Amino acid sequence: MKILAVCGFGVGSSMVLKMSLERVLRELGVDAEVDNTDINSARGTDCDAIFTSAELHEELKGTCNVPVYPVKKYMDLAEVKEVVQQFLNDKK
């Protein structure tokens, strides 16, 4: 499984989100590759899901062939876990 953490430029906040996603996925025992990237690259990247900010969620959701999940607080592991579990449930 491949997951993208996306921000405007692909270097700052997406890296923080990537680390939170990796930690939550490890805790849940989910084997997944997590990459961080910018919004434009995300549209053409082959992946299973995209996690991003609420602002970029609106921009991405209509232009991608995969589900896009908004996360408000990238360092809030409880919130990140809740959003990841929503993705895993949607995938079933």
Rank of each mutant, 00 (worst) to 15 (best):
residue 62 G to F: 02
residue 68 V to G: 00
residue 88 L to M: 11
residue 69 Y to P: 09
residue 45 T to N: 08
residue 24 V to R: 01
residue 87 F to I: 08
residue 75 M to I: 08
residue 89 N to P: 03
residue 46 D to I: 05
residue 1 M to K: 13
residue 60 L to P: 08
residue 90 D to W: 10
residue 70 P to F: 03
residue 30 V to Q: 07
residue 82 E to Q: 11
residue 23 R to S: 12
residue 63 T to E: 15
residue 16 V to N: 11
residue 9 F to T: 14
residue 58 E to T: 15
residue 41 S to Q: 12
residue 7 C to Y: 00
residue 47 C to A: 09
residue 33 E to D: 12
residue 36 N to I: 02
residue 80 V to C: 12
residue 50 I to E: 03
residue 10 G to A: 01
residue 27 E to F: 07
residue 38 D to E: 06
residue 2 K to C: 06
residue 72 K to P: 06
residue 58 E to M: 15
residue 58 E to V: 15
residue 2 K to S: 06
residue 17 L to V: 02
residue 45 T to Y: 13
residue 12 G to D: 03
residue 89 N to C: 07
residue 13 S to M: 13
residue 23 R to K: 11
residue 59 E to S: 14
residue 81 K to Y: 13
residue 8 G to R: 07
residue 87 F to A: 10
residue 67 P to N: 09
residue 39 I to Q: 03
residue 11 V to Y: 12
residue 17 L to T: 00
residue 63 T to C: 14
residue 43 R to P: 07
residue 6 V to I: 02
residue 50 I to M: 05
residue 66 V to H: 11
residue 69 Y to S: 04
residue 50 I to D: 01
residue 4 L to Q: 00
residue 75 M to H: 00
residue 21 L to W: 08
residue 38 D to H: 10
residue 11 V to A: 11
residue 58 E to L: 15
residue 49 A to G: 10
residue 57 H to L: 13
residue 74 Y to S: 01
residue 63 T to S: 15
residue 60 L to R: 05
residue 92 K to H: 06
residue 71 V to Y: 07
residue 42 A to Y: 05
residue 79 E to P: 09
residue 23 R to L: 04
residue 68 V to K: 06
residue 65 N to K: 10
residue 14 S to F: 02
residue 32 A to N: 01
residue 17 L to N: 05
residue 17 L to E: 09
residue 52 T to E: 09
residue 36 N to L: 01
residue 83 V to I: 05
residue 89 N to T: 11
residue 46 D to Y: 00
residue 32 A to W: 11
residue 24 V to C: 14
residue 47 C to H: 09
residue 82 E to N: 14
residue 53 S to N: 13
residue 53 S to R: 09
residue 11 V to H: 06
residue 32 A to K: 01
residue 78 A to R: 14
residue 42 A to V: 03
residue 7 C to F: 03
residue 47 C to E: 02
residue 80 V to I: 08
residue 84 V to S: 13
residue 49 A to Y: 07
residue 58 E to Y: 15
residue 31 D to E: 13
residue 24 V to K: 06
residue 43 R to F: 13
residue 13 S to K: 10
residue 62 G to W: 01
residue 61 K to N: 07
residue 32 A to I: 01
residue 73 K to C: 08
residue 64 C to V: 02
residue 23 R to H: 12
residue 3 I to N: 05
residue 53 S to M: 14
residue 19 M to G: 13
residue 72 K to W: 10
residue 61 K to P: 10
residue 8 G to L: 14
residue 5 A to E: 05
residue 66 V to F: 12
residue 11 V to L: 10
residue 49 A to M: 10
residue 20 S to D: 04
residue 16 V to S: 11
residue 7 C to H: 01
residue 1 M to A: 13
